[in-house]
Write a protein that binds this DNA or RNA. Structure first.
Lengths: 260, 260
DNA sequence: AACTCGCTTCCCATGATGTGGGATTGAGGA
DNA sequence: TCCTCAATCCCACATCATGGGAAGCGAGTT
C-alpha cells in the first residue's frame, strides 16, 4: 500500500511530489515520525527521506523534537492552515453547526473533499472529530461529495480500492454508481452501518451555483435516535443548516440563486 | 526584496524549497494568485512557477478557480492545518483566551514563532486577528519570542532588515539586544506604539521546562486602558493565563516544575 | 473586425540538481 | 563491552527539474 493519495502529474515534479507526500504522511501515522520511519512509509531510501525532511524543516513545515529528533508538523503548517481556514470562512460555520447539533441532539460535521478523502473541517459536537479523514465510498459525507463531485476532482471511477469495513460496505463500482444515482435523486445520502455498526449518518450537500458540492454536512447518531420515521425531520433540519452555510461560506458570485 | 523567509539549506532541495516558497507566498499577497503573479513575486520564470503550482495542485495543496484559473490554498492545507492545530492543543487555548479577554477588557492573542515572524494562532477578541503575521522586532509578542528563543531558531542576529513602522520602532541591533535583556529581566515585553500608534501591548511567555518560549501571550488595548498604574494588574492576569496555558498546551515531560 | 496585450499551457534540449548507496558517528540495549 | 539501529554526511552518476520558446485563448482597444 503505497501512498498514492495524490494524483501523479506527468510534468517534472518528483522532488516536490515526494516532499508533499512526507507531509501527507502525518495524518495517517502518529503525530511524530522519525526520518527512517518516513522512509519506510514512503518506500524511499533513508537518505532521500532525510533530505526532504531537512528541507521541510528549514521552511518551517516540519519541526524537530530537540531530544528525540523526530519530526512533527511545523509552525508554517499551523499558520497556513489558520489562514486557509479563515479564507474559506469556516470559522463562520462553527456556530451554525453547534446550533444544528443542539437542535437535533446529534453530532453535526462539515467536511470538504481532499483528493480521495472526505475531511471533517468543522464540527458541532462536544468531542469534535475535526481533522479526521474518512474514505469517500463508505461514508455519507463521502457519498455526497462524490454524487455532486466538482468536475476535475474525479468521480467514483478514481477510487480503485474500496475496502470493506462492515458487510454493508458498498464495494462494487456498479453498486456504487447506483447508490450515487439514488443519492442525487433523494438529495441526501444515508450511511447505515457501512463504516461502523451502530452508527447512522445522514448527509446533504452544500451546493454552489454550478450545482456542485463544495461541502458536505452530516448529522450522525445511533439508529435509535435517527429512526426511519424521524429521518424526514432530520433532513429538514440539515437542509436548513446547509442553506445557511451556502450563504455564509460562498461568495455571492459562486452562490446559487435563492429561489432555485 | 526576495522571499527569503525560509532558511536556505545547503543540501539538495531547490525544487522543494521553491514549492514551499509558493505556499508561503499566500500570506503576504492576496488570497488568490495567478501563475504569472507567483512567478513575479518569487522571481522565477513563468514556466517554472506554473509547473510548481500544478504539482501543488495535484497534491491538493493548492486549488484552482474554475473560471479565472487563479490559485488559492487547497484542501490539503486546511486539513493539515486543522490536524497540527489540534496536535498542538490550541483548541484548548481558546476558552482561556476568551476568559482573559473578558476579565481584562483587552484583546488577548496567542502567538508562536514561525521563522522570522510571530504568528497569532488563537485569539480571545471579538474580531480575532488569527493567522496574522507580525514582525518579531516591533511587537511585544515578537520580543518575547526572541528573548526566550529556543536554540536553533536563531536569535535577534538573524533579522537583518528591521524596518521602522513608527519613530519608536527599535531598529539598532544593539538597542534590540538591550531591550531583550530588559524583557528577560522584567519577564514581560511592552510595545508602546512601536508598530502602530495608539496601541499598547503587554506580552508574556509560555515557557517550557528548558526555559524557552513555546508561545507568547499578549494583552492589547489603547494606552487609556492599559495605564502605567494598571500595568502590574494586567501582568498578573496575563501571567496567570500563561501558567494555565503551560499546563494545557505542554505535555508533562516538556512542562517546567510547578514550583519554579 | 482586426489588432494587441497578457496570460495559461505545452514542448524539449540542456546540464544543473536531486538521487541513493555507503561510510561515519552516536545513542541505547543486551 | 559489544551489538544494533538511527541520524547524518558524502560524492559520483544520470535522472530530473529547468526555462526559453511558441502555440492557443480571451479580453479590452482602436
Amino acid at each position: 500500500m503505497t501512498e498514492a493519495a495524490t494524483v501523479r502529474v506527468p510534468g517534472g515534479a518528483q522532488a516536490v511530489q515526494r516532499a508533499l507526500d512526507v507531509l501527507h504522511c502525518f495524518h495517517d501515522n502518529g503525530p511524530d515520525l522519525s526520518a527512517s520511519e518516513l522512509a519506510r512509509r514512503l518506500e524511499l531510501p533513508v537518505s532521500t527521506a532525510h533530505r526532504l525532511a531537512r528541507t521541510l524543516l528549514g521552511a518551517g513545515f516540519l519541526e524537530q523534537d530537540a531530544r528525540t529528533s523526530r519530526y512533527r508538523l511545523g509552525p508554517a503548517v499551523t499558520e497556513l492552515g489558520r489562514l486557509s481556514y479563515h479564507q474559506r470562512g469556516l470559522h463562520l460555520a462553527a456556530p451554525e453547526l453547534s446550533d444544528l447539533a443542539e437542535r437535533t441532539g446529534a453530532t453535526a460535521d462539515l467536511a470538504l473533499r481532499s483528493g480521495p478523502h472526505a475531511v471533517i473541517v468543522a464540527g458541532g459536537s462536544v468531542t469534535p472529530k475535526v481533522g479526521l479523514r474518512r474514505p469517500l465510498h463508505s461514508t455519507a459525507l463521502g457519498k455526497v461529495l462524490l454524487a455532486w463531485a466538482r468536475p476535475g476532482e474525479g468521480g467514483p471511477s478514481s477510487l480503485p480500492p474500496l475496502p470493506a469495513f462492515t458487510d454493508r460496505t458498498i464495494v462494487e463500482p456498479a453498486a456504487m454508481e447506483a447508490e450515487l444515482a439514488r443519492v442525487r435523486d433523494d438529495a441526501y445520502a444515508l450511511n447505515d452501518g457501512e463504516s461502523a455498526y451502530g452508527v447512522r449518518t445522514l448527509a446533504v450537500p452544500v451546493l454552489d451555483g454550478a450545482g456542485h458540492a463544495r461541502f458536505a454536512l452530516a448529522v450522525r447518531a445511533t439508529p435509535e435516535v435517527i429512526t426511519a420515521a424521524r429521518t424526514e425531520w432530520f433532513l429538514v433540519q440539515a437542509r436548513s443548516c446547509a442553506r445557511a452555510l451556502e450563504v455564509l461560506l460562498l461568495s455571492p458570485a459562486e452562490r446559487r440563486p435563492p429561489a432555485s
